[in-house]
């Protein structure tokens, strides 16, 4: 590459392979990546994300993340027809205030890996949060259905999830047009 643009914006197809080089333990072939500016300090955002139990608050398809030990956690993720898929994920790189990278362990329903980088935004505008995710669309019947759900627009899903993270960190809540709690609950399902 002869320019300074991130790999996730590359026109050519082998970007995923190159991005994988930057991951400690790459799992998966499809690459998505997005950056959002959040007007909060880097350390605060890192700490919130590192406390993995917080993640279902803004990752829409994630039902629960249960810490198993300091590095490993069990993920329960929504799948079609009310079912869920699960995997155990391990943190492969952890630099406080800067980077969290992870990879799913053997036997994951949807093998995936990725990293979130936290950088000071120029001009004192808070923090740039960049999520880079590699994942393998699953096979089989159930896999097809899951793929449909995740692949509909995985980049859009990532962008929406990052927006929710931004909203939560900047405003203390996630914007909703639900008019009452019943509508709010229906939205979440």
């Amino acid at each position: 590459m002869s320019d300074d643009a991130p790999l996730t914006t590359a026109k050519q197809d082998d970007a995923a392979a190159q991005a994988a080089d930057s991951l400690v333990e790459a799992k998966g072939d499809d690459l998505i990546g997005k950056t959002v500016t959040i007007d909060r300090p880097r350390e605060e955002l890192y700490a919130f994300w590192r406390d993995v139990g917080n993640l279902p608050l803004f990752l829409e398809n994630v039902v629960a993340v249960e810490p198993l030990d300091d590095r490993r956690s069990r993920w329960v993720v929504k799948a079609p027809a009310g079912s869920t898929v699960e995997w155990v994920s391990a943190i492969t790189e952890d630099r406080p205030g800067e980077t969290i990278a992870w990879a799913s362990e053997e036997g994951a329903d949807v093998p995936n890996s990725g990293r979130v980088d936290f950088r000071d935004a120029p001009g004192g505008r808070g923090c740039w949060v960049t999520a880079t995710i590699l994942y393998d669309p699953p096979g089989g019947f159930i896999g097809k259905a899951i793929a449909k759900m995740f692949q509909r627009e995985p980049a859009i899903q990532a962008r929406r999830d990052l927006r929710r993270f931004k909203q939560l960190m900047e405003t203390g809540e996630i914007a909703t047009s639900a008019r009452n709690r019943r509508e709010y609950e229906e939205e979440g399902t």
Binding site: R160, R164, K166, Q167, A175, T176, S177
Partner: peptide, 14 residues
Amino acid sequence: CDNGLPADNQDIAQ
């Protein structure tokens, strides 16, 4: 404002 719209409703404007 960046945060006035629900995340899913931001796609069209984007």
